[in-house]
């Protein structure tokens, strides 16, 4: 009896060990800054947490790999990836033409969008049901924008007649919104939430537009970066990102930090 038990235990241990080995066969080293809250940062207890970290864990689970996080300063992120210091960059890195020349990116797990913030209950019907701006309803309203930003380009292209003013700092832009010098501003909704809407000053304000996600202006978004020439891995990462999107995981990760989803909800495999 005892012998059998020991044998069973041994078998189990062997089996467990075996399982461990197959899983450990692939370890993906993930580079991130570890200081970019709420996307990748260390908690007071020293644990890594954040949206990027959750995505990394979710992806690793789906592709069946172990994870090892490597903290890397931003300016050395791409060189470190290319020098094989880690395998993936999951660090809120936007997919750009310039970067695509050096590396590959998975499908975006976070999108770049713009959104308008204005006074609560102002009942400005600025967008129709398909998400297109209604130019006439912008008449008489003043819009604050960052100077030479993608939001400024979007306004110039879509609403050339709108009354816009440009700011060099986002603080000045928010102050003028609060003081009533402008009626709305357009910015990145995550920043607007973290810096403004979730704070005391932003109490009387809310988003007054849907998420505006035109790639031509705002880019594709944030993807998982990897070295070129890893087609097989790229395919698996893409499948994993799509799965995280469709099974609601990405939304769940986002809702930990924001009151809205920050990925492309219309993603197709």
């Amino acid at each position: 009896m005892k012998k059998t038990a020991i044998l069973t235990l041994a078998t189990m241990a062997f089996a467990l060990g075996g399982m461990f080995q197959t899983a450990a066969a692939e370890t993906l080293r993930v580079g991130m800054e570890c200081t970019y809250a709420p996307f990748n940062f260390k908690t007071a207890a020293g644990e890594l947490d954040g949206y990027d970290v959750d995505v990394a864990k979710g992806v690793a689970k789906i592709v069946g790999a172990d994870l090892k996080f490597v903290c890397q300063k931003w300016d050395g992120m791409i060189p470190a990836l290319l020098a094989n210091k880690f395998d993936l960059v999951i660090a809120s890195m936007s997919i750009t033409e310039k970067r695509l020349k050096k590396m590959d990116f998975s499908k975006p797990y976070r999108i770049s969008v713009g959104r308008l913030v204005g006074k609560k209950n102002a009942n400005m019907k600025l967008f129709d049901d398909t998400g297109k701006p209604i130019a006439a309803n912008f008449a008489g309203l003043k819009v604050g924008l960052g100077r030479a930003t993608t939001y400024a380009s979007w306004f110039e292209a879509k609403l050339p007649k709108a009354n816009v003013v440009f700011y060099d700092s986002s603080d000045a832009m928010y102050i003028d919104l609060v003081n009533g010098r402008t009626d709305m501003i357009m910015t990145n909704p995550m920043k607007a939430f973290l810096k403004f809407l979730s704070k005391k000053d932003g109490a009387g304000f809310e988003f007054v537009s849907p998420q505006i996600d035109e790639q031509k202006f705002f880019g594709t978004g944030v993807g998982i970066g990897l070295r070129k020439g890893n087609e097989a891995l790229l395919k698996r990462l893409n499948a994993a990102v799509v799965q995280l999107s469709t099974d609601g995981s990405l939304e769940k990760y986002a809702l930990k930090y924001f009151p809205f989803a920050i990925h492309n909800q219309k993603m197709v495999p």
Binding site: R147, A148, V165, F166, Y167, D168, D176
Partner: peptide, 13 residues
């Protein structure tokens, strides 16, 4: 510096 688009404001843009 206070959002006016005088010659300097335009130049900065």
């Amino acid at each position: 510096t206070i959002t006016l688009l005088d010659m300097m404001g335009i130049a900065r843009t």
